[in-house]
């Protein structure tokens, strides 16, 4: 993620790049250039009179824009690097700017600081566990990064165990680092996942959809069977229900949700509820 202090300029506009405001929710393609909204909206013509001494009327105040995944700042141009829909989120405290990103469909995970992921322990070396998270490199996880862990009191983690944790370091060209505690030292749901249940992989887009605050799928699934479920932002889902059969059904439903419309989904859930 790159933060951007922006000086929007018309000189580079030409006629080809599209304004970001006009393509919100539309499909953008890699290599496309976007223009950010102009600053003039913030200081309207009414205020103009208050600055008589300013010789250069073209100067605009700075505007904070965050480029999310799929966008990249290149000089003072904003380029699209992924194929998908352009999204925008208004910033919390007034003013303009905000966050722009591209909702794309992909399977390969790239670690992002703060993401909650499911990893598989691949090795124990000294005081560090190596955890496979599906990224280009395994993440490292210190044995002290568990709730209540001390030098004497080591957590019981075996090779092949599942870990639900959070990235604290996720930089380019650097080994990512995970922890299983929050800033207060509490587990907060993180740690080693139980020995039962099924792990399966879905696309990253589906995970984001399922984790959206207003997602109906999770509520509908919850009504079906009592279940335990963990979503990792790296596209892994761990699910456990009472029986193997139920677990399998849940896994297959969640996987199928990606290619179903809301109506089709409701039909299937209704059919399952009957049986």
């Amino acid at each position: 993620m790159a933060e951007r202090g922006l000086v929007a300029s018309e000189s580079l506009a030409g006629c080809r790049p599209r304004a970001a405001r006009t393509v919100l929710g539309q499909v953008v393609l890699p290599g496309e250039e976007l223009l950010l909204p102009e600053q003039e909206e913030t200081d309207g013509p009414g205020v103009a009179g208050e600055r008589p001494l300013r010789l250069n009327a073209g100067v605009r105040s700075r505007l904070r824009v965050v480029c999310g995944p799929g966008l990249r700042r290149c000089g003072d141009r904003l380029l699209v690097t992924k194929c998908g829909r352009l999204r925008h989120k208004e910033p919390g405290c007034g003013s303009s700017g905000g966050i722009y990103w591209v909702d794309s469909q992909q399977k390969r995970y790239v670690p992002v600081k703060g993401d909650h992921v499911i990893g598989i322990v691949t090795a124990k070396s000294g005081d560090i566990f190596k955890v496979d998270v599906g990224g280009s490199e395994p993440a490292s996880l210190s044995y002290l990064a568990f709730e209540g862990a001390t030098k004497r009191n080591r957590p019981n983690v075996q090779v092949g165990d599942l870990i639900y944790g959070q990235f604290v370091v996720a930089n380019k060209d650097m080994e990512p680092e995970m922890v299983c505690i929050d800033s207060c030292g509490r587990a907060n749901g993180m740690g080693v996942i139980g020995q039962d249940g099924l792990l399966f992989k879905v696309t990253l887009g589906l995970i984001r959809k399922l984790l959206a605050p207003d997602c109906e799928i999770i509520q509908e699934v919850g009504k079906l069977y009592p279940l335990e479920i963990v979503f990792g932002m790296n596209g892994r889902i761990w699910v456990k229900a009472k029986t193997i059969q139920q677990t399998l059904i849940l896994a297959n439903i969640l996987e199928a949700c990606e290619h179903m419309t809301a109506d089709q989904r409701k039909q299937i859930f209704a059919r399952l509820a009957e049986s």
Binding site: G160, I193, G197
Partner: peptide, 26 residues
Amino acid sequence: MKETPLSNCERRFLLRAIEEKKRLDG
């Protein structure tokens, strides 16, 4: 690139499912 390791829970689940004559894809 290294192969994604198979977790213990997947292995256990698969074997238990096979014992119950069930397969992941139905």
